[in-house]
């Protein structure tokens, strides 16, 4: 073995230095990240190649899907069904939905994974309008959502579903919702973390009790209120 005399423990210093840098970075991150995402967000507007999307933390939305592949829905043949504990089960086309009263909700969208997008205008039909149109029967207590990706599902209590900031969304940022963003129709539950806003929405079923959705079965909360959005919060 080499003698330790006349040698320096540089390896340990590099190791500890790296750890220290990382700890400092966690503290400094919120500030640095805002600047970085802001710059990158602006750059990506000017970047037709999409290369900026490969850089870390590009800001904006990130693509999440729990299915391997999702077939595109043809806007002409798309149908949304409303069923379960209702008087009049519905089968609505995109045009039917567009003909209903449109509501705009503009909030910060926050994902549990840590990314967020500020002030996103979302337009669509209030879920409560749809429920009224179908006529919820007695004994109903919850709403279950299914998706044409064949895998995802979500749930809300009937009380949550009737909030004015819960939409069956048709537009985001003044454009029809793209396939990758869950179009043509997705749920938008503004007061909750974004996983509640099921993409590729195809079915709404009024049920007696909450049936946990896809992520909820893996342990994520059913009531995924954003900080400050809990009912009763001043």
């Amino acid at each position: 073995m080499m003698p330790t005399e006349g040698t320096k423990p540089i390896g340990r210093r590099v190791f500890l230095g790296t750890l220290g840098l990382g700890a400092a970075a966690i503290v400094a991150a919120p500030t640095v990240q805002k600047a970085w995402s802001g710059t990158l967000g602006e750059l990506s507007q000017l970047d037709p190649t999409g290369v900026s999307g490969l850089l870390p933390n590009p800001g904006g939305f990130r693509y999440f899907s729990v299915a391997g592949h999702v077939d595109r829905a043809d806007p002409a043949t798309y149908r949304l069904t409303v069923g379960g504990l209702v008087d009049r089960p519905l089968e609505l086309s995109l045009a039917d939905l567009q003909a209903m009263r449109q509501t705009r909700v503009t909030r910060e969208i926050v994902c549990t994974d840590g990314w967020s997008v500020e002030q996103v205008p979302v337009d669509g039909v209030r879920l409560s309008d749809l429920l009224d149109r179908a006529g919820v029967t007695g004994g109903a207590g919850a709403v279950r959502f299914t998706c044409f990706d064949g895998v995802y599902s979500e749930s809300l209590t009937l009380e949550q579903a009737r909030r004015p900031d819960v939409l069956v969304a048709l537009q985001m940022e003044d454009k029809p919702i793209s396939h990758n963003s869950g179009g043509p129709v997705r749920l938008y539950v503004a007061p909750m973390y974004f996983y509640k806003s099921a993409k590729w929405l195809s079915g709404i079923e009024v049920t007696e009790k909450v049936e946990p959705g896809y992520w909820e079965k893996t342990g994520w909360p059913v009531d995924a209120w954003l900080p400050g959005q809990e009912p009763g919060h001043a």
Binding site: G22, A25, I26, V27, A29, P30, V32, Q33, W36, P56, N57, T112, D113, G114, W115, S116
Partner: peptide, 8 residues
């Protein structure tokens, strides 16, 4: 803050 942790 989650966003900072994700950034790192």
């Amino acid at each position: 803050p989650r966003s900072g942790v994700l950034f790192i």
